[in-house]
Design a protein around this nucleic acid. Structure first.
Lengths: 210, 210
DNA sequence: TAACCCGCGGTACAAATGTTCTGTTCGGAA
DNA sequence: TTCCGAACAGAACATTTGTACCGCGGGTTA
């Protein structure tokens, strides 16, 4: 708990956290007054102004319950993005071409630690162990950003046309051919004609949960 | 988008998502009215009641902006748990023994998709490639639950005493010895005396982000 | 001492906001 | 046709709620 705050301000901050995590909507000034045993709404208002000055919260004036929790550096926190899980990914299957048109199988909430501000992401469930060389196991979730091209060194989901195979590897264009480097540094790269490789998306994250 | 809802209701649901993700607090009825081009507040109220009946939202009556988004099965969603990143994990380093006493280096927000309701989790940043056989790479984040013992087949963080080495493997007690099975099915297990293996925690999730 | 600022109390007010009431329209069932 | 309920419109009403105002006590400073 930060120490550039008065005891009352810390108490308000704690109450805000608790209330929001309990209700999913912020408290009114009078909720705070009651929850922190404060004698007057004006005192709450006063301390909220101090908290806003110090970058712990953000308020929209004239709007009820319009308190956003920030992280003390003025950044908002704990936003999540709902990412649709569009299907499976396996070595022998092409990726879904039009992510938008698919009905999501399920939805996962990702925090923006992972999404990094990106928005139109989608996820696929890995089926089979064919991507072990990318350190990706059966059952893992891979999060992708739709892309038709990639910068050198980025990890992409690529469709290798003549093999009819999807693979996840680091992408290095080298003139007329492309070097696809497994993420496991002990394994050898493969080389393909540039025409033979279709970049389908950029890998944003992989998640394995037990 | 669910189909047991009228177009107006779907529009309201979409607006709720957008508004909340933008402001971190829910809209008022009149915000919804404006945002969805609805002619009257009573229509918004009417459709909110239908949405509540069908389990898409929850409302607290007489409280402004008291709308919680549910997932359609009546469960609340987008709760996150703040998990402290206590330090690094590497082959030659023991794990922090008393997670509680450590000052977190940073904090990550994890959605309860991953935490699965568990609460006292902590995370470690993987340093080096020594855990490649567990399909875990340099820079990955591993999420652990403090544990001194494990059930057969669970993935644990184990300290191998005489080697002074931390490893992440599937745990199979076999009488007086323990089989530690890499997650990469193509690799061979190692065997250790039961006395020589200290279970430090259970692996809950691994996250790799690019 | 006086002047001043900070934190606080109490109160009043106006705006924001949830709720209710009365009708209307429309489509399907009887 | 008539009846009924779902969905909507419009307006009025009653709380809820943010905000402003005035004042007080204590500490600091000139």
């Amino acid at each position: 708990m930060p120490s550039d705050l008065s005891e009352k301000q810390q108490s308000i901050l704690r109450f805000l956290e608790e209330f929001i995590s309990e209700h999913d909507y912020p408290p009114s000034i009078r909720d705070i007054q009651g929850g922190c045993d404060i004698s007057s709404t004006s005192v709450v208002d006063y301390n909220l102004k101090r908290l806003e000055e110090k970058g712990y919260i953000r308020r929209d004036r004239e709007v009820s319950r319009a308190i956003e929790l920030l992280n003390g550096q003025g950044e908002r926190r704990r936003r999540t993005l709902q990412v649709p899980v569009l299907g499976k990914i396996a070595a022998g299957l092409p990726l879904p071409v039009h992510p938008d048109s698919m009905a999501p199988v399920e939805v996962v909430d990702l925090t923006d630690d992972l999404t990094n501000g990106r928005t139109n992401l989608y996820a696929l469930r890995v089926q089979g162990t064919s991507m072990i060389d990318a350190l990706i196991n059966d059952g893992d979730l891979v999060v992708l950003e739709p892309r038709q091209e990639a910068n050198p060194g980025e990890v992409v989901a690529a469709w290798i046309i003549d093999r009819e195979e999807t693979t996840l590897k680091k992408y290095y264009p080298e003139g007329k051919r492309v070097r696809l480097q497994p993420m496991n540094a002990t394994m050898d790269p493969i080389y393909e004609d540039a025409d033979n490789v279709q970049v389908q998306g950029r890998l944003v994250a992989t998640i394995r949960s037990f």
